[in-house]
Protein backbone atom coordinates (compact mmCIF):
# COMPACT_ATOMS: atom_id res chain seq x y z
CA UNK A 1 0.00 0.00 0.00
CA UNK A 2 1.37 3.39 -0.90
CA UNK A 3 0.16 6.95 -1.20
CA UNK A 4 1.56 10.16 -2.58
CA UNK A 5 1.89 12.45 0.40
CA UNK A 6 0.42 15.91 0.00
CA UNK A 7 1.81 18.07 2.79
CA UNK A 8 0.31 21.42 1.90
CA UNK A 9 1.69 24.63 3.39
CA UNK A 10 0.99 24.90 7.11
CA UNK A 11 2.37 21.55 8.27
CA UNK A 12 5.74 21.46 6.51
CA UNK A 13 6.41 25.18 6.75
CA UNK A 14 5.11 25.91 10.21
CA UNK A 15 4.35 22.72 12.12
CA UNK A 16 6.90 20.21 10.81
CA UNK A 17 6.71 18.16 14.03
CA UNK A 18 3.21 17.10 13.00
CA UNK A 19 4.69 15.77 9.81
CA UNK A 20 7.27 13.87 11.84
CA UNK A 21 4.73 11.88 13.84
CA UNK A 22 2.67 11.28 10.73
CA UNK A 23 5.52 9.87 8.76
CA UNK A 24 6.55 7.63 11.65
CA UNK A 25 3.08 6.21 12.14
CA UNK A 26 2.70 5.27 8.50
CA UNK A 27 6.14 3.82 8.34
CA UNK A 28 5.28 1.61 11.29
CA UNK A 29 2.07 0.54 9.61
CA UNK A 30 3.98 -0.39 6.48
CA UNK A 31 2.12 2.15 4.40
CA UNK A 32 4.53 3.87 2.07
CA UNK A 33 4.32 7.62 1.58
CA UNK A 34 5.84 8.87 -1.68
CA UNK A 35 7.24 12.38 -1.76
CA UNK A 36 6.30 14.13 -4.97
CA UNK A 37 8.06 17.08 -6.42
CA UNK A 38 6.21 20.19 -7.49
CA UNK A 39 3.09 20.49 -5.35
CA UNK A 40 1.88 24.02 -4.76
CA UNK A 41 -0.52 25.29 -2.16
CA UNK A 42 -3.64 23.07 -2.34
CA UNK A 43 -4.98 26.00 -2.35
CA UNK A 44 -6.70 26.91 0.89
CA UNK A 45 -10.47 26.34 0.78
CA UNK A 46 -11.05 29.00 3.43
CA UNK A 47 -8.84 31.51 1.65
CA UNK A 48 -8.16 31.25 -2.06
CA UNK A 49 -11.40 29.43 -2.86
CA UNK A 50 -13.34 32.18 -1.15
CA UNK A 51 -11.89 34.85 -3.39
CA UNK A 52 -11.41 32.99 -6.63
CA UNK A 53 -13.07 29.68 -7.23
CA UNK A 54 -11.53 29.24 -10.66
CA UNK A 55 -7.99 29.74 -9.43
CA UNK A 56 -8.70 27.31 -6.64
CA UNK A 57 -9.94 24.72 -9.12
CA UNK A 58 -7.03 25.22 -11.47
CA UNK A 59 -4.26 24.96 -8.88
CA UNK A 60 -5.98 22.05 -7.20
CA UNK A 61 -6.34 20.21 -10.48
CA UNK A 62 -2.68 20.81 -11.23
CA UNK A 63 -1.74 19.26 -7.88
CA UNK A 64 -4.02 16.29 -8.43
CA UNK A 65 -2.57 15.71 -11.88
CA UNK A 66 0.87 15.20 -10.33
CA UNK A 67 -0.08 12.07 -8.44
CA UNK A 68 0.82 9.11 -10.54
CA UNK A 69 3.09 6.86 -8.56
CA UNK A 70 0.63 5.80 -5.89
CA UNK A 71 -1.84 4.79 -8.61
CA UNK A 72 -3.26 8.28 -8.33
CA UNK A 73 -3.81 8.10 -4.60
CA UNK A 74 -3.07 11.06 -2.40
CA UNK A 75 -2.93 11.13 1.37
CA UNK A 76 -2.82 14.35 3.34
CA UNK A 77 -2.26 15.22 6.98
CA UNK A 78 -4.34 18.35 6.55
CA UNK A 79 -8.17 18.55 6.51
CA UNK A 80 -8.07 21.74 4.44
CA UNK A 81 -5.95 20.16 1.73
CA UNK A 82 -8.22 17.11 1.75
CA UNK A 83 -11.28 19.28 1.32
CA UNK A 84 -9.72 21.20 -1.53
CA UNK A 85 -8.51 18.14 -3.37
CA UNK A 86 -11.74 16.19 -2.85
CA UNK A 87 -13.67 19.33 -3.74
CA UNK A 88 -11.80 19.91 -6.97
CA UNK A 89 -12.49 16.29 -7.88
CA UNK A 90 -16.13 16.79 -7.06
CA UNK A 91 -16.61 19.91 -9.15
CA UNK A 92 -14.63 18.62 -12.11
CA UNK A 93 -16.39 15.30 -12.20
CA UNK A 94 -19.83 16.82 -11.64
CA UNK A 95 -19.69 19.01 -14.69
CA UNK A 96 -17.74 18.26 -17.84
CA UNK A 97 -17.85 21.92 -18.79
CA UNK A 98 -15.82 22.74 -15.69
CA UNK A 99 -13.37 19.95 -16.43
CA UNK A 100 -12.86 21.19 -20.00
CA UNK A 101 -12.45 24.77 -18.89
CA UNK A 102 -9.81 23.89 -16.28
CA UNK A 103 -7.94 21.52 -18.57
CA UNK A 104 -7.81 24.24 -21.19
CA UNK A 105 -5.80 26.31 -18.71
CA UNK A 106 -3.68 23.37 -17.56
CA UNK A 107 -2.78 22.72 -21.17
CA UNK A 108 -0.81 25.95 -21.17
CA UNK A 109 1.64 24.36 -18.75
CA UNK A 110 1.50 21.02 -20.49
CA UNK A 111 -0.72 19.31 -17.96
CA UNK A 112 -4.06 17.61 -17.95
CA UNK A 113 -6.20 16.25 -15.15
CA UNK A 114 -8.61 13.36 -15.72
CA UNK A 115 -10.41 13.69 -12.38
CA UNK A 116 -9.36 10.26 -11.21
CA UNK A 117 -6.91 10.87 -8.41
CA UNK A 118 -8.15 9.39 -5.18
CA UNK A 119 -7.79 11.59 -2.08
CA UNK A 120 -7.71 10.48 1.53
CA UNK A 121 -7.30 12.08 4.90
CA UNK A 122 -4.70 10.37 7.07
CA UNK A 123 -7.32 9.65 9.75
CA UNK A 124 -9.40 7.99 7.09
CA UNK A 125 -6.53 5.66 6.27
CA UNK A 126 -5.87 4.98 9.95
CA UNK A 127 -9.52 4.08 10.46
CA UNK A 128 -9.44 1.78 7.46
CA UNK A 129 -6.40 0.07 8.97
CA UNK A 130 -7.65 -0.01 12.52
CA UNK A 131 -6.61 -3.64 13.00
CA UNK A 132 -3.08 -2.83 11.93
CA UNK A 133 -3.06 0.13 14.30
CA UNK A 134 -4.15 -2.16 17.09
CA UNK A 135 -1.42 -4.68 16.33
CA UNK A 136 1.26 -2.01 16.62
CA UNK A 137 0.26 -0.63 19.99
CA UNK A 138 2.94 -1.18 22.58
CA UNK A 139 1.97 1.43 25.09
CA UNK A 140 -1.78 1.88 25.38
CA UNK A 141 -2.75 5.45 26.22
CA UNK A 142 -4.25 4.72 29.57
CA UNK A 143 -5.34 7.81 31.46
CA UNK A 144 -5.64 9.99 28.38
CA UNK A 145 -9.03 11.65 28.63
CA UNK A 146 -9.31 13.03 25.15
CA UNK A 147 -11.61 15.77 23.98
CA UNK A 148 -11.79 15.08 20.28
CA UNK A 149 -12.15 17.97 17.90
CA UNK A 150 -13.15 16.63 14.50
CA UNK A 151 -13.00 19.97 12.77
CA UNK A 152 -15.42 21.03 10.07
CA UNK A 153 -13.51 20.20 6.94
CA UNK A 154 -12.81 16.64 8.00
CA UNK A 155 -16.57 16.00 7.77
CA UNK A 156 -18.31 18.61 5.69
CA UNK A 157 -19.69 19.16 3.14
CA UNK A 158 -20.54 15.49 3.38
CA UNK A 159 -21.41 15.32 -0.30
CA UNK A 160 -17.80 16.17 -1.12
CA UNK A 161 -15.96 14.58 1.81
CA UNK A 162 -18.11 11.49 1.62
CA UNK A 163 -16.78 10.14 4.87
CA UNK A 164 -18.27 9.68 8.34
CA UNK A 165 -21.47 11.31 9.63
CA UNK A 166 -21.33 15.11 9.27
CA UNK A 167 -22.89 15.69 12.71
CA UNK A 168 -22.42 12.47 14.57
CA UNK A 169 -19.02 11.15 13.50
CA UNK A 170 -17.38 8.07 14.96
CA UNK A 171 -14.08 7.46 13.17
CA UNK A 172 -11.69 9.42 15.37
CA UNK A 173 -13.49 8.25 18.49
CA UNK A 174 -12.89 4.69 17.37
CA UNK A 175 -9.22 5.35 16.75
CA UNK A 176 -8.82 7.05 20.13
CA UNK A 177 -10.51 4.16 21.87
CA UNK A 178 -8.35 1.69 19.98
CA UNK A 179 -5.28 3.46 21.35
CA UNK A 180 -6.52 2.74 24.86
CA UNK A 181 -7.48 6.33 25.55
CA UNK A 182 -10.88 7.56 26.60
CA UNK A 183 -12.96 9.84 24.38
CA UNK A 184 -14.67 12.48 26.51
CA UNK A 185 -17.88 13.94 25.20
CA UNK A 186 -18.32 17.70 25.55
CA UNK A 187 -21.15 20.06 24.62
CA UNK A 188 -19.39 21.95 21.86
CA UNK A 189 -17.65 18.93 20.39
CA UNK A 190 -19.04 19.54 16.93
CA UNK A 191 -18.55 23.30 16.89
CA UNK A 192 -16.09 25.09 14.65
CA UNK A 193 -12.79 26.15 16.24
CA UNK A 194 -13.03 29.57 14.66
CA UNK A 195 -9.74 29.55 12.81
CA UNK A 196 -11.07 30.61 9.39
CA UNK A 197 -12.72 33.79 10.68
CA UNK A 198 -9.38 34.96 12.03
CA UNK A 199 -8.83 36.55 8.63
CA UNK A 200 -11.81 38.85 9.03
CA UNK A 201 -12.54 39.10 12.75
CA UNK A 202 -9.89 38.13 15.28
CA UNK A 203 -12.12 38.76 18.30
CA UNK A 204 -14.77 36.47 16.94
CA UNK A 205 -12.18 33.82 16.23
CA UNK A 206 -10.94 34.04 19.82
CA UNK A 207 -14.48 33.91 21.17
CA UNK A 208 -15.18 30.72 19.26
CA UNK A 209 -12.13 28.89 20.57
CA UNK A 210 -12.66 30.27 24.05
CA UNK A 211 -16.10 28.70 24.13
CA UNK A 212 -14.65 25.42 23.05
CA UNK A 213 -12.05 25.53 25.80
CA UNK A 214 -14.71 26.28 28.38
CA UNK A 215 -16.73 23.34 27.25
CA UNK A 216 -13.67 21.07 27.22
CA UNK A 217 -12.66 22.15 30.71
CA UNK A 218 -16.13 21.37 32.01
CA UNK A 219 -16.02 17.91 30.49
CA UNK A 220 -13.08 16.64 32.52
CA UNK A 221 -10.88 15.92 29.52
CA UNK A 222 -7.12 16.28 30.05
CA UNK A 223 -6.12 16.86 26.45
CA UNK A 224 -7.42 17.49 22.95
CA UNK A 225 -6.93 15.44 19.82
CA UNK A 226 -7.43 16.83 16.35
CA UNK A 227 -6.57 16.23 12.73
CA UNK A 228 -6.17 19.62 11.05
CA UNK A 229 -3.21 22.03 11.22
CA UNK A 230 -5.47 25.09 11.13
CA UNK A 231 -7.41 23.74 14.09
CA UNK A 232 -4.09 22.85 15.76
CA UNK A 233 -2.85 26.38 15.52
CA UNK A 234 -6.13 27.70 16.79
CA UNK A 235 -6.10 25.35 19.78
CA UNK A 236 -2.40 25.41 20.58
CA UNK A 237 -1.50 29.02 19.81
CA UNK A 238 -4.60 30.80 21.10
CA UNK A 239 -4.50 29.59 24.70
CA UNK A 240 -1.76 31.99 25.70
CA UNK A 241 -3.49 34.82 23.88
CA UNK A 242 -6.74 34.14 25.65
CA UNK A 243 -5.06 33.82 29.02
CA UNK A 244 -3.51 37.20 28.46
CA UNK A 245 -6.72 38.76 27.25
CA UNK A 246 -9.21 37.24 29.67
CA UNK A 247 -7.10 36.33 32.67
CA UNK A 248 -7.96 32.72 32.08
CA UNK A 249 -5.58 29.91 32.78
CA UNK A 250 -5.82 27.44 29.92
CA UNK A 251 -3.11 24.82 29.78
CA UNK A 252 -4.78 22.15 27.74
CA UNK A 253 -2.31 19.98 25.85
CA UNK A 254 -3.22 19.67 22.19
CA UNK A 255 -2.23 16.53 20.30
CA UNK A 256 -2.35 15.75 16.67
CA UNK A 257 -3.98 12.38 16.18
CA UNK A 258 -0.77 11.08 14.61
CA UNK A 259 1.16 12.09 17.74
CA UNK A 260 -1.13 10.05 19.96
CA UNK A 261 -0.87 7.07 17.62
CA UNK A 262 2.90 7.43 17.61
CA UNK A 263 3.02 7.55 21.42
CA UNK A 264 0.93 4.39 21.58
CA UNK A 265 3.28 2.84 19.04
CA UNK A 266 6.07 3.41 21.53
CA UNK A 267 7.74 6.48 20.02
CA UNK A 268 9.28 8.75 22.59
CA UNK A 269 7.94 12.28 22.96
CA UNK A 270 11.33 13.67 22.05
CA UNK A 271 11.35 11.78 18.75
CA UNK A 272 8.10 13.46 17.85
CA UNK A 273 9.15 17.02 18.57
CA UNK A 274 6.43 17.49 21.17
CA UNK A 275 8.55 20.23 22.67
CA UNK A 276 7.55 22.45 19.78
CA UNK A 277 3.98 22.59 21.06
CA UNK A 278 3.18 25.93 22.63
CA UNK A 279 1.21 24.30 25.40
CA UNK A 280 3.66 21.84 26.80
CA UNK A 281 2.20 18.38 27.31
CA UNK A 282 5.05 17.51 29.66
CA UNK A 283 3.13 17.51 32.95
CA UNK A 284 0.36 15.39 31.53
CA UNK A 285 2.74 12.92 29.98
CA UNK A 286 4.69 12.60 33.20
CA UNK A 287 1.58 12.00 35.21
CA UNK A 288 0.67 9.23 32.82
CA UNK A 289 4.14 7.64 33.04
CA UNK A 290 5.31 8.68 29.61
CA UNK A 291 8.95 9.62 29.22
CA UNK A 292 9.58 12.98 30.77
CA UNK A 293 12.27 13.91 28.33
CA UNK A 294 10.61 15.97 25.68
Amino acid sequence: MSYDIFLGCVIPARLPFLEASGRKVFEKLGIKLNDIEGFSCCPDPTGIEQIDHKTWLTMGARNLSLSKRGNGSIISFCSGCVETLKGVNYFMNKDNKVKDEINKILKKIGKNYDGKTNVKHFAEVLYENLNKVKENIVKPLEGFKVAIHYGCHYLRPSEIINWDDPFDPITIDEIIKTLGAESIDYDLKMECCGNPVEKSDMDLSLLMIDNKFKSIQQSGANCVALVCPACFQQFDFKQRELNKKNNSNYKIPIFYLSELVALAFGYKPEELGLKFHRVQPKTLLESLQFSAKI
Binding site: P45, C152, H153, P196, V197, K199, S200
Partner: peptide
Protein backbone atom coordinates in the same frame (compact mmCIF):
# COMPACT_ATOMS: atom_id res chain seq x y z
CA UNK B 1 -16.60 37.42 5.31
CA UNK B 2 -17.52 36.26 8.79
CA UNK B 3 -18.61 32.89 7.45
CA UNK B 4 -16.33 30.30 9.00
CA UNK B 5 -17.03 27.86 6.16
CA UNK B 6 -17.91 25.23 8.72
CA UNK B 7 -20.59 24.01 6.30
CA UNK B 8 -23.07 23.30 9.04
Amino acid sequence: WLCSTCQK
